[in-house]
Design a protein around this nucleic acid. Structure first.
Lengths: 194, 194
DNA sequence: CGTCTATTTGAATGTACTCAAAAGCGGTGG
DNA sequence: CCACCGCTTTTGAGTACATTCAAATAGACG
């Protein structure tokens, strides 16, 4: 089943009975997106929070100069969608686009609310993963401040070794907060140093 | 009561019965810290998550060059302590220090676990505030990338108009990811522009 | 093979940093 | 009330890290 990956992931944090798993499965849906397809757009309300089964998405922001800034990538066993828009049901600040063919399990906003009421244990599940996500986000802020671009790139490679193979370099540059040209220079410098 | 501020804050998100409020109050404790006092240290396990009643704390990181980087400030109606250390009960990455006399309501790690078991509704409360915190953290990442130092300073002033009066300038510079000298230059430039 | 997109390279520029020194400012004591 | 101390902020010169813009090169796909 397509939902197995999600159930297994949840079981790392809480124990669901078979009945509860059935209720859960009845309120979520599987969906496949093509490469390049938008999961959600800046300005639209984010209707679904998505759990990735396979593939990769980028969440990004287009600034006033038309420049794109990648906020985050999502891969297998992580979540996608503009969380701020999802929880408030207000227009999204970010675009979310699939970098490759991507399979997700979707939580409709209303359905998730129902689920949280019917299976209060899920509150605990989301609370725990949000704590972890917040910690990771804070660490990223610190890295952006205290490390040079080169160091940030090396940390990125260590933290997410698989992502680098999945996506073009200019997106990594954007995620790291530098230009694609400069990342290219960093890489050639690293080769030279060896 | 010193705990009223917390109860009122919680009531924005969930409804507790009087019994539940009593259980809650029985498991938390009030504490006052002096200016300059450490709430927690890098390397030590963060034992208490703290809800601020008054005052101000900074969470910061000392990098390899001995430079300090402010990760966040906490003021009234927000939380303090190294969350990553608290949730994992591993040594903290950050120092947390009181910038002025500060009153907090403390959640001991074990007591909070008990509370979450006895009052499952609290899972919901924490889930909701964590969602908001994560969204804010992501927005900060984007601001750091897409805005210049000057713009970041102006946004900071708008978002947290009260903090600027509470703390020295060099801490704001650190929070913004710039040197104190450069923030000083930005300010003189802004005065000149008017 | 040609086209489109992604990456690399180089020169000029800019934003923010370092280091050093001076000025401001609040508190304490004579 | 003034002088002095410690701490914070300001100013300036020189520098470094990263950007912009332009052009060349490399890769992927039909």
């Amino acid at each position: 089943m397509k939902t197995d990956a999600l159930l297994k992931y949840i079981s790392n944090y809480i124990d669901l009975t078979e009945d509860e798993e059935q209720i859960l499965v009845s309120k979520i849906k599987y969906r496949k997106y093509l490469k390049g397809q938008y999961y959600g757009q800046q300005g639209d309300v984010c209707k679904y929070s998505g759990f990735l089964i396979s593939g990769c998405t980028k969440m990004f922001y287009s600034d006033d100069n038309g420049q794109e800034h990648v906020v985050m990538f999502s891969i297998k066993d992580w979540w996608t969608g503009d969380l701020g828009s999802y929880i408030s049901q207000n227009p999204a600040d970010y675009h979310v686009q699939c970098i490759e063919e991507t399979e997700v399990i979707q939580f409709d906003y209303d359905k998730r609310e129902e689920l949280l009421t019917e299976i209060p244990k899920l509150e605990r599940f989301f609370r725990i993963i949000l704590e972890k996500a917040l910690v990771a986000s804070q660490k990223r802020i610190i890295r952006n401040f205290s490390l040079t671009a080169k160091e940030r790139y090396l940390v990125f490679k260590k933290l997410y070794p698989t992502i680098e193979q999945q996506i073009p370099q200019y997106l990594i540059a954007s995620y790291l907060g530098i230009t694609k040209e400069f990342l290219s220079k960093i890489k050639s410098q690293l080769i030279f140093e060896q």
